[in-house]
Design a protein around this nucleic acid. Structure first.
Lengths: 150, 150
DNA sequence: CACAATGGCCGAATATAATTCGATGGAGCG
DNA sequence: CGCTCCATCGAATTATATTCGGCCATTGTG
């Protein structure tokens, strides 16, 4: 994990489709070296993968919300069961399993407020283990690249 | 936005580095057609970009937390100023701007609990506009692909 | 200090993929 | 029924990824 690795991770987080040649040129190394570095980062598990980022409104999911959920009882079995359940919901795009007051934070992307309402009332509150739900609409979501402190 | 576009978005969300030939073969279309489809999705703004996914523990950021923040007064000026501030913090990897009780949800990745403590006490609570903070440690974070209902 | 071993890097050669573009044919329309 | 339009196609071209043998520089060793 030297400066070269950090630089590669930074560039690939910004644009996961930059060509190997292009990366090599920017970092002033040979393409073969660059390729080997990226392969090594993958093999070491530092670089987990590459993903396309889609525009939610274009997919008919113009409304995002965060749903804080508390389950009861907060046992391993109940938590794992609930996690498996929400992971199957198409409206859920990300699940945070938490300590603290809430057990889960669900990041959902839905069509509109009716859809959001239906997700909370028809899908979530139907679950017997669900103890508490608080929904917040997301106005804006800013994602950043992770920078290596090295 | 037909089934072909949806399939492409699904595949590219799963693996943003699949080759065009590979995608074309799976979808039973010509590579040139596949390329044109992807180009169109980009031009229409449906496909926003491609990003590498890094392993946070490998980057010395093995601890994640969600920090709920309320600012005072909750005016546009204060909110925008605070958003700009947290966007600059290297520990913050994602910022949600919310309605409801909390104004912000900060997804942070830090070295350890000392680091987390220092982020909250030394960086956040130093801000005069900050009215309330609640920190929850993230045990697990599951990301999903967005599936087009079409 | 001399020397061998190691590992990262390089560049040329090869394999593979992206990209272009003219041709084709089916869908929609007059 | 014939015309136009446009998505799709495949071949040709261009660009890129990948391999691999050799070359330092660094490190460890007698």
């Amino acid at each position: 994990m030297d400066e070269l690795d950090s630089a590669l991770l930074r560039l690939l987080q910004q644009d996961g489709r930059r060509t190997n040649r292009d990366l090599a040129q920017e970092l002033r190394i040979a393409p073969s070296t660059c390729l080997e570095r990226v392969r090594s980062l993958r093999e070491r598990g530092v670089l987990l993968g590459f993903h396309a980022d889609v525009d939610l409104p274009s997919m008919g999911r113009g409304l995002q919300a965060m749903i804080a959920v508390r389950v009861r009882p907060p046992t391993r079995a109940v938590i794992e069961q609930f996690q498996a359940f929400v992971a199957r919901m198409p409206e859920v795009i990300s699940v945070f399993v938490l300590t603290g007051t809430d057990d889960f934070l669900l990041h959902v992307a839905v069509r509109d407020t009716d859809h959001l309402h239906s997700v909370v009332l028809d899908k979530l509150t139907e679950r017997k283990e669900l103890a508490d739900v608080r929904t917040s609409v997301v106005y804006d979501h800013l994602r950043k690249t992770v920078i290596d402190p090295v």
